[in-house]
Amino acid sequence: MEKQRLISSYDEVNDTFVGKIDGQNGYCADYSISEGIFLSIDKNNIPTSVLVNNASKVFNISKKVLENSNVEIDINCDKICLYFTMFIENLQICSIRCKNKYGIPNISFKIDSNY
């Protein structure tokens, strides 16, 4: 599993969560992996950022919880499925499995704000 440092922010007014891998700039493609959750990847099909619109509704949690900076995102992918799991303060707030129709190769990433 590759481990990267996560820089996350939450905009309470717009209810938008953004998580970006430290040191990564730009993206090649942006995929909607679930209702309101977008995954950006670079030209090598490696995740660079996550955007969640209407985050409190998508995750069904309070805006106060989303303001916490202790965030970890696990992204795993094989030829068939993409798995996305998000934790705040070690509490799992989201777990998604979707078909890998994006052409993302076999990857295993842990993006952690405490790395």
Rank of each mutant, 00 (worst) to 15 (best):
I93W: 07
Q4I: 05
Y31S: 03
K101S: 13
Y115C: 12
E35C: 08
I80D: 13
E89R: 11
Y27M: 08
R97H: 07
V65L: 14
E67F: 01
D30W: 02
K110L: 07
K64H: 12
A29E: 15
N60Q: 14
L51Q: 10
E72W: 01
T85G: 00
P47G: 03
Y115V: 09
D42N: 15
S95V: 06
T85F: 03
G23H: 15
K43S: 13
F38N: 07
E12T: 15
P105R: 07
D11N: 12
N44T: 06
S49M: 10
T16R: 08
K110F: 01
N68C: 04
F84I: 05
I46K: 04
E2Q: 04
K43N: 13
G19F: 00
T48L: 06
N54A: 14
K64E: 14
Y115Q: 12
V50L: 12
I80C: 07
Y10G: 00
V52N: 02
K64D: 14
N53H: 11
G23Y: 09
I93Y: 12
G23K: 15
Y102L: 13
V65F: 03
K101G: 14
I80K: 15
I21G: 01
N114F: 11
K3R: 15
I73P: 00
I104R: 00
N76E: 03
S8I: 06
G19Y: 00
L91S: 15
C28F: 11
Q92V: 09
S62E: 14
I73E: 01
F109K: 03
V52Y: 01
N68E: 13
I37D: 02
E89M: 13
S56Y: 05
N60P: 00
F17Q: 02
Q92W: 05
D74Y: 07
Y102G: 08
S8D: 09
N106C: 11
S49W: 01
P47D: 04
G103T: 06
D78A: 08
D74R: 04
G26W: 08
S49C: 12
V71R: 05
Y102M: 13
N114M: 14
N14M: 06
A29R: 08
I96Y: 08
I7E: 05
N54Q: 13
V50I: 15
I111L: 12
V65C: 10
F87V: 12
I73G: 02
Y115F: 14
